[in-house]
């Protein structure tokens, strides 16, 4: 019996808009276009597309973006 696995979202990207200075690095580097700009701050435009690669977190100079495994995200 084969059931269609519902594509559960595995990663959650959280943005601290107080710290984000809108440098566009995360938006440019994200391989899945998960991120975009809104009112000069980064925001998660397409959370489902996130593959958890952490590039945004590694390159964010403002410590304003963190990538969580969904399980951790809810636990927090």
């Amino acid at each position: 019996m084969y059931t269609m696995a519902v594509k559960a979202r595995k990663y959650e990207v959280i943005i601290n808009t107080n710290w984000c200075k809108g440098c566009l690095i995360c938006v440019a580097l994200c391989p899945k276009n998960v991120l975009a700009m809104q009112k000069a701050k980064a925001y998660v435009a397409d959370p489902e597309a996130c593959t958890g690669c952490q590039l945004c977190e590694i390159y964010c100079p403002d410590f304003a973006i963190t990538v969580h495994n969904v399980s951790d995200a809810h636990v927090e």
Binding site: K21, I25, Y59, P61, D62, F63, A64
Partner: peptide, 12 residues
């Protein structure tokens, strides 16, 4: 938030 300018590499 730190003092470095937008896009400054210091944070990286």
């Amino acid at each position: 938030p730190h003092i470095w300018c937008t896009g400054c590499g210091c944070g990286i």
